[in-house]
Design a protein around this nucleic acid. Structure first.
Lengths: 330, 330
DNA sequence: TTGTAAGCGTTATCAT
DNA sequence: ATGATAACGCTTACAA
């Protein structure tokens, strides 16, 4: 463990500069010396110490990604794609999960910059001007995914508001007269990344203004399945669609439906958000909103790398397209 | 970006040794100096360069994990738990995915040691004496998860063979007369981690010897759903159970069943392996084999850390318990 | 073709 | 209480 250039130099009876030149395939070394150096290096199992190299060159070729956890399958898919793209571009990827505290989030970010990551991908839960200031003061390029923090920081996202509007239009077009919107408790702001849910809610409510015939109610609670009871008791009265801000909510509700012999879409319509990959195993196929996660990953990584390697970095807000998947549950 | 101790020293008019003492809360600094140093450091936004520190101390407090991809949900859950445990122990975690080539796997491992990760977790696809030699020559502690490579390298696993035997016993006890074992193509050895599948096959066949009344056939192909046709055509003749070496296979087959009005377990029994978390959304509940992934993660991380920090490291084979989950599909 | 020497930003030892 | 100096392992002018 830990053969250095110096040792090789000593053994070969040359200076470490020469060894270095041989090792790095540079010119100005005699063939004889080069061969000998390479031989000895191989013999001893020499490996360059990338810490030392980085300390010198100022480059680590490493990116970091900071996020809440891996419970969200859509994030896992994105993460995987990010890893692939980063590796393709010659960067290694570091992952840090922080549970759900804003302080922990900042600590992880700080740790990454201390380790001299060259750029950071962030699916942030923190927000506000102090956090913005914190990110800007890092001196390291940051690209946010999903959540918007500041105009000064590039963000890759989809137009959640528009997606929600389109969802409402689809529901309205199918003759539903009541929409129940299911999302996480909006008070969780500090504990969870709920920016996208709020965006969806905005879009939904804005669109509803154009559909006076649609009644509306929201369930923003952890026990959403229980809270659905009054809705389910009145299914016969009014044709109802449940719009879930996340496929997992829809899956839980569908499981409940199956247990209680409630048929979809016959008795009630249901729609999700995200199009997580496991949906393909669920029958009936859930109607949902899909984003191309590979696309998000590639765009985010490339934006980050261009900030790292580019001359001048202008923060951009990149909005990627989504698609309504009209399947079987609506 | 890049305020160093030297700059602070210059500004404060003291040596960098003194600055260091103040910064690291050591003794032998006057209160006045200490306060001034801390003030200036804060002012300039000083952050230690962990690369430099590591180069010096020889410690990076970083672990690496190398695996195929994130398609396997059971791995994602393990990964998440590993991250948590590593962080709890003060280590940061690096992830590298390699697709499915043995060379890529070795490259990732090499890259990690070059970066001076202190230990490596590995869910290996490579095997054989050369690979063993490769791992041993790294000079860095390695712990394998799932797949066994060598007695010289600690491995954390479950007793797949025993689990398969127990699965067969359960199936036999329920009166089935035919078992169809579904697993990935066994020729994929080099492309995919199939050690566990082979173990299961061994266990299954060993146990079958004790149940002469059970007929047996294996489907080890990517188009396993199609290949099931002859089996499905003869369901009326013999009570059949399909044992899948992985829940995903079972899910795909169940989806096919639903589309073709085949009822489980009335018409045919089906059982999986792994107990991936999405099973909770699937109706009927799949009978399967469960491992405690948190347990695997904690044990693997701690074994690795004890090899890093411990005096003498003896390679261990750690077998963790599993559980048969007798649910609704058998 | 080869070597010397300074530097990257820390830590650690030994003086003063 | 403070400082000078060497060291970690590499890179990179600049000499010879």
């Amino acid at each position: 463990m830990g053969v250095t250039v110096n040792e090789i130099a000593k053994i070969c009876g040359v200076s470490r500069t020469t060894v270095l030149r041989a090792l790095n395939n540079q010119s100005r070394v005699s063939d004889r010396t080069r061969r000998q150096v390479l031989e000895v290096a191989k013999e001893l199992g020499y490996r360059p110490n990338l810490l030392a190299r980085s300390l010198n060159t100022g480059r680590t070729m490493t990116l970091g990604i900071v996020a809440i956890n891996m419970d969200n399958l859509i994030f896992v898919q994105t993460l995987s794609a990010i890893n692939t793209e980063a590796q393709r571009k010659g960067y290694s990827l570091n992952i840090a999960l922080h549970g759900q505290s804003s302080e922990a989030e900042m600590q992880r970010i700080r740790d990454f910059t201390d380790r001299r990551m060259e750029g950071i991908l962030l699916s942030p839960i923190s927000k506000g001007p102090e956090f913005e200031q914190f990110l800007l003061s890092l001196g390291t390029p940051v690209v946010c995914i999903g959540n918007y923090v500041s105009d000064q920081i590039s963000t890759v996202m989809i137009d959640e508001e528009l997606a929600a509007r389109e969802a409402v239009r689809l529901i309205a077009s199918k003759g539903y007269r009541r929409i129940v919107f299911v999302c996480p408790p909006l008070a969780y702001e500090s504990q969870q990344n709920i920016y996208s849910h709020i965006q969806r809610k905005h879009g939904l409510e804005a669109e509803l203004a154009l559909h006076p015939g649609l009644s509306y109610q929201i369930i923003a609670a952890d026990d959403y399945v229980q809270q659905l009871s009054p809705v389910l008791a009145t299914l016969g009265d009014v044709r109802t669609a449940i719009l879930c801000s996340g496929d997992i909510y829809a899956l839980n509700i569908m499981r409940y439906f199956k247990a209680h012999k409630i048929k979809t879409p016959r008795d009630v319509g249901i729609m999700g958000f995200d199009n997580i990959s496991i949906l393909e195993y669920i029958v009936p196929r859930l109607t949902t909103v899909s984003t191309n996660v590979e696309n998000v990953a590639v765009v985010a990584v490339n934006e980050l790398i261009s900030q790292i390697e580019g001359d001048q970095a202008v923060a951009k807000k990149i909005v990627l397209p989504h698609k309504i998947l009209d399947m079987e549950t609506l």
